[in-house]
Design a protein around this nucleic acid. Structure first.
Lengths: 122, 122
DNA sequence: CTGTATCCTACTCGATACTG
DNA sequence: CAGTATCGAGTAGGATACAG
């Protein structure tokens, strides 16, 4: 296949899946959130905070908003005092989980090898 | 499952696959590079540049270095004039491709839906 | 051809404090 | 409880020039 053909498929066109879809959640926080939401089912803001100890509320809130606007996560606000908000995966979000789990499996399988590779760099 | 258990599995421990492995290539450029390298087989620096028109040489070089240090990409430098360098996937890199392709398929399938979701945000 | 050097911008991230 | 506001630090990304 010619380079130009590949370019058409992945780069130039506005319909490149990597650029237009995956770029929005291809980072450690978003993927982590999706996998955790899958395992736990329904979670509140504070539960997510505790599940990922080293994420600040601002960053957590930001990623949740992004995931919600993509349509991967559903946010349900209950008009109560004190306020309660629940986050859970949408159907679209759930459909992504098997792939994310495979990715996670792959990472787990190759964790040692990759850590060794990374150490060699130093 | 308790939140604390999830925390142990994905967040606290140094062995969390998402944090220690996936975080290194979970971005649009790296994933794009891996998929393109898979389709083309062996590519030179310039071919990659042309395949992804809107990546600067600095950024391309940086991502290739990272992928190389993870062990996903192999870099072969031929001592010629003019210089020639060839990039290709390692076995480890190839083992990741099926998953990346599934991700890409998923993205392509849901491209329209997600674009619509994102537009609603504005 | 294959990058590196430089400069600059923009975004991301993190900590903390604070509001409804 | 569920976030937002603010500030600051660090880093990733982009344009361009140019070196081996």
């Amino acid at each position: 296949m010619k380079v130009e053909k590949i370019s058409e498929k992945y780069s130039c066109v506005a319909s490149c899946p990597m650029r237009n879809v995956i770029a929005h959640f291809a980072n450690k926080w978003s993927m982590l959130l999706l996998v955790i939401l899958d395992e736990f089912g329904v979670m509140r803001f504070n539960e997510l905070s505790r599940a990922i100890p080293d994420i600040s509320p601002k960053v957590l809130s930001g990623h949740l908003k992004t995931l919600e606007s993509i349509g991967l996560v559903k946010r349900i606000l209950y008009a109560e005092v004190p306020p309660r908000t629940e986050y859970e995966l949408t159907e679209l979000g759930k459909s992504l989980i098997p792939i994310l789990n495979q990715l996670s499996e792959w990472a787990r399988r190759n964790l040692e090898k990759i850590s060794k590779n990374l150490r060699k760099r130093d």
